[in-house]
């Protein structure tokens, strides 16, 4: 499982403050703590409070590159903000994200190609959030068609079925799990799959429990990558155990420790 740490986000007060005061220590500590907890890459988002994300995003990229060479996942709804981050990135990058809208695909796929970045494609469009599996598959097909036409390597594409909060769209969660497997069948080689995990428990009370239960189920559905909080130890333990049960690692009594020794 490719784990992308979600904690560098202007939505969180410590990061908002760090952006405001240009306090790189806070950001760097947050980056290193997530890596120590098992993150393979870091999501960077300036958040809604950022007054000038065009300056904040490259600043985040630069200060984090001072302490790690892990891939950076540039998270913004605005392609220009992503491009400002890509311009200064020395680490590998992942664009987070394009929707299935043609206007977005036509900007972000060339951008991903130009900067040799991976790309997350979310199965939503200007028409709104899909309500069922078929709509998700249709949007996935749109994204795949465009990446194919533009010669973008499928193995660098991550499809996100857009996870809905359990207290908003309980009826859709099973569809989301099933579509993770079906995404794999719509092209050869298959695209990778990704979810933004924390969405599932947005507004719920037992967040960590819901997150880890859903993640285990998604892993069983062949999920390749997740944006999550790697500092949630129980979540990481559940993930390691789910992968163990799927025979991805060899069992031993100290399998949690063994995984972390990797």
């Amino acid at each position: 499982m490719f784990i992308i740490g979600e904690l560098i986000n202007g939505m969180y007060s410590n990061i908002a403050l760090a952006l405001k005061d240009r306090d790189k220590k806070i950001v760097q500590t947050c980056a290193l703590e997530q890596i120590a907890s098992g993150a393979d890459a870091l999501d960077l988002s300036c958040g809604p409070a950022s007054k000038n994300p065009l300056i904040d995003m490259p600043w985040l990229v630069e200060v984090i590159q001072e302490v790690t060479d892990k891939p950076l996942c540039l998270d913004s709804g605005k392609p220009k903000v992503i491009e400002e981050g890509l311009k200064v990135a020395k680490n590998k990058t992942i664009i987070n994200s394009t929707t299935a809208d043609v206007e977005k695909l036509e900007i972000l796929i060339p951008l991903a190609k130009k900067y040799r970045s991976k790309l997350i494609g979310i199965t939503i469009s200007a028409k709104g959030i899909p309500q069922n599996k078929d709509q998700r598959l249709e949007l996935a097909a749109t994204i795949l068609t465009h990446t194919g036409e533009q010669g973008f390597p499928i193995e660098d594409l991550y499809l996100d079925p857009i996870v809905m909060p359990i207290n908003v769209a309980q009826g859709q969660i099973r569809d989301i799990l099933e579509v993770l497997l079906e995404f794999k069948m719509i092209s050869q080689p298959p695209p990778k799959t990704i979810i933004g995990l924390s969405n599932i428990s947005q507004g719920a009370k037992a967040r960590s429990l819901i997150n880890r239960t859903f993640l285990s189920m998604a892993v069983a559905s062949g999920l390749d990558s997740a944006i999550l909080n790697p500092k949630d130890k129980e979540l990481m333990d559940a993930l390691i155990t789910a992968e163990l049960i799927l025979n991805k690692n060899i069992y031993c009594d100290s399998y949690l420790e063994a995984y972390r020794k990797k």
Binding site: Y251, D253, E257
Partner: peptide
């Protein structure tokens, strides 16, 4: 027993 082999290596390295 591969599970014990792995466990013992961890115990030793600990």
């Amino acid at each position: 027993d591969i599970n014990i082999a792995k466990q013992l290596n961890i115990l030793i390295s600990d």
